[in-house]
């Protein structure tokens, strides 16, 4: 009876110690307000590539083991769904580029994440968690021809706090970076030279 209990206690302790060594999962969650800007009189189809919707970044420890797995794909979709309807008169989400080409819209927008970086206080010796994301924004005409293809970066940070977990701080820094993306994308869209030239032809 005692031996059985001892085995169970050992099994629980082993499970706890093993889980403590595993990767910490962070699914980025936040709320994104709608931008207060004047929408452009355009109909735009949006294609979320699986590379964006399923995007996850793995941060490795100094010993090479997986430390954090940060899934931010869905939060990017939520962000674009909040931002794009404020930027354009009509927005349609499509499942493929072919579907978008058949809709006869003014433009097709397909964002991608090129790079994701995380800076932890334990490594930088600063009292902030930092997230840096590099995007490839692609805008195509209805026939699939490229109108513009440009790079946008976003940055977010959050200070360390004694009663807050690293996962929560990483999430908050990522949400700040996503809001930064939304603000710079919505305010700089018409200033991208290729986009500006294309808008002048309409």
């Amino acid at each position: 009876m005692m031996a059985g209990l001892g085995t169970r206690v050992l099994a629980v302790l082993a499970a706890i110690s093993l889980s403590a060594c595993g990767v910490n999962n962070v699914v980025v969650q936040g709320s994104f307000p709608t931008p207060n800007i004047s929408p452009l009189p355009l109909s735009v189809a949006v294609f979320y590539d699986p590379a964006l919707t399923e995007f996850a970044y793995i941060e490795y420890s100094e010993t090479g083991t997986e430390e954090y797995n940060i899934a931010s794909g869905q939060s990017h979709v939520e962000l674009f769904n909040a931002v794009l309807p404020a930027m354009f008169d009509e927005v349609v989400v499509v499942g493929s580029l072919e579907e978008a080409e058949m809709l006869g819209v003014d433009a097709i927008f397909a964002p991608l994440i090129e790079e994701f970086q995380l800076a932890l206080p334990s490594k930088t010796k600063l009292d902030v968690y930092e997230v840096w994301i590099k995007y490839n924004m692609r805008l195509m005409a209805a026939d699939g021809e490229y109108i513009a293809d440009w790079v946008l970066t976003s940055y977010g940070k959050t200070p360390t706090e004694s009663m807050r977990s690293a996962e929560s701080a990483i999430n908050d820094a990522a949400v700040v970076a996503l809001r930064d993306l939304a603000s710079s994308f919505s305010l700089s869209f018409t200033q991208v030279p290729e986009v500006r030239d294309w808008l002048n032809t309409l």
């Binding site: 307000p33 207060n36 940055y155 700040v176 809001r179 939304a182 603000s183 710079s184 919505s186 305010l187």
Partner: peptide, 12 residues
């Protein structure tokens, strides 16, 4: 800041 979005974000 939410009501003014995106005009009062750290970058803007």
């Amino acid at each position: 800041v939410d009501a003014m979005f995106p005009w009062f974000e750290p970058r803007t």
